[in-house]
Amino acid sequence: MKNTLYAVVAATSIAAMPAANAVDFDVQITNLSNAIYFTPFLVAAHPAGNNLFVSGQPASANLQAMAEGGDISGLEADVMALGATIVTDPASGLLGPATSTTFTMNTDSTSNDRLSIVAMLLPTNDAFAGLNAVEIPTAPGTYRFDVPAYDAGTEANDELITGGGMPGTPGIPADPNGLAGTGGTGAAAADANPNVHIHRGNLGDSNATGGPSDLDSSVHRWLNPVIRVTLTVR
């Protein structure tokens, strides 16, 4: 787990500001799903007016890399440029179904009063969970956010396990629980909506060695929300 404060620059430039956004809080991310895994999360407290994605707008290249292959390095560089307070990969790898990861953040002496969290869903082509720049509460207490799955809109949801995780490469990188089939012919062509949108869910089928999808309709579907983020402000 890498827990890094990128507050040095910001602290010197806003040292005269009142510490209105000083918040010390715990974050718990729970994978609510029954059979979906999440690639390493990017968690960023950042200034208002910035978004990693916007529904109805095309995904950035860095969002696409996260959604198609779980690569958060580009988005990490984006938020570092904002002076964000970040945590990457809090679960030290994949976050499995019905499991949680908990960590602490501190935005003292920063203007990082918004929280964004993203990670890719496996096995999917380009689905990601996205908590999108919510205001970080300052009053002590426990706050819960239920987060849906979005489709980055950048890759056809063919539902074929091909190992393809590079941006622009078709297919699903992997099914970590090993319950996917083979021999699918391709469940779907390109998304009707090429912008970021709420994901329509995996389709799957009941044929482990053929059919349109390599995924199992009784295993790999989900209903929103997919993760629960619990903030405990001290």
Partner: peptide, 13 residues
Amino acid sequence: DLADRVAMHSGVV
């Protein structure tokens, strides 16, 4: 079941 623990339901097919 898939695993002996409570999780969200993925719906009926």
